[in-house]
Amino acid sequence: MSKPADLVQGTLDLLLLKIVALEPLHAWAISQRLKQVSGEILQVSDGSLYPALHKLEQDGWIKGEWKVTENGRRAKFYSLTRPGRRALEREAANWERLAGAISQVVRLNEV
C-alpha cells in the first residue's frame, strides 16, 4: 500500500481531476481506475481519497451527483466542472514542466 506521502504533493488532485475528466465516476470506481491505468503503481488510500474529493468538490472543480450504478445501487458520481477543466489544464501543464525539469536533472551525466 502506498501512502499518500508517496505521491508528490499536489499530484493527487491532478490525478483525480484527470480521471474524472474522462467520464463521471463514483469514488470507488475512481480509486479502482487509478490503480488500473497506472498499472497498480499509483494507489491512493481510502483515508486520503475522500478528503481530496470533497475538497475538490468544495472548490467547485468537480461536482457530485447521485446516480444509480449498473447494478442498481445509488452512488455519488463525480464529474468535472468548467472551472475544474481549467484547473486540470493548468495542473497538467505544471506537472509537465515539473516532470520535464526533474527528468532533465536526473539524466545529467556524471563526470
Binding site: M1, D46, P51, H54, E57, Q58
Partner: peptide, 20 residues
C-alpha cells in the same frame, strides 16, 4: 481496516459538505 480512520474521513466530509 484498509479504509483506515473512517470516522475522521466522515467528519471531515460532513464538515465540508455542510459548508458547501
Amino acid at each position: 481496516r484498509q479504509f483506515g480512520d473512517i470516522q475522521a474521513v466522515r467528519e471531515a466530509g460532513e464538515r465540508m459538505s455542510k459548508e458547501k
